[in-house]
Simulated assay, not measured.
Amino acid sequence: MRALSLDVVRRYGIVVFFVALVAVSGLVSPAFLHGDNVINMLVQFAPLGIVVTGQVFVILVGGLDLSVASVMATAAVIATGFDGTNASAPEIFAVTLLVCACTGVVNGVLVTQRQVSPFLATFATAVVLEGLRFAYTQGAPSGNVPPLFHEMGTGFVRGVPVNVVMLGVCAVLFGIVLHRSTFGRRVFMTGGNTESARLVGVNPDRVRIACYVISSMLAGLAGLVLSGYVGIVDNWVGRGFELDSIVAAVMGGVALSGGRGSLLGGLTGAAILVIVFNIVLLVGMPVQAQTIVKGLIIVVASACYVVRRRR
Rank of each mutant, 00 (worst) to 15 (best):
L218E: 13
F123E: 00
G191Y: 05
I297G: 03
L4A: 11
R133W: 01
G13I: 00
M72W: 10
L132V: 01
L267Q: 07
V283G: 08
G159D: 06
F174S: 04
D65T: 06
N40A: 12
M217R: 02
R239S: 10
V293C: 06
V38N: 02
M1T: 09
A140N: 15
L243Y: 07
N144C: 04
I92E: 03
T74G: 02
L64N: 09
I292W: 10
T268V: 15
V225N: 02
F183E: 12
L167S: 11
G35M: 08
G143Q: 10
L64T: 07
W236G: 12
L33M: 11
D205W: 06
V293M: 11
V157M: 14
A171N: 10
I209Q: 05
I297A: 13
S257A: 06
M285I: 13
T80F: 05
G265D: 13
V19E: 00
L48T: 04
H179K: 04
A197Q: 02
G13L: 00
G284H: 14
S302F: 08
P146W: 04
V230K: 11
N40E: 15
L221A: 12
L21C: 11
G295K: 08
N163K: 06
V68P: 05
N107I: 13
D205T: 06
F45L: 10
L256Y: 12
F156P: 00
R185V: 02
G220I: 02
R11S: 12
G284I: 13
L129N: 05
G63D: 02
N235G: 06
G266N: 04
P204Y: 10
D234P: 07
T190M: 02
V164G: 08
V276D: 06
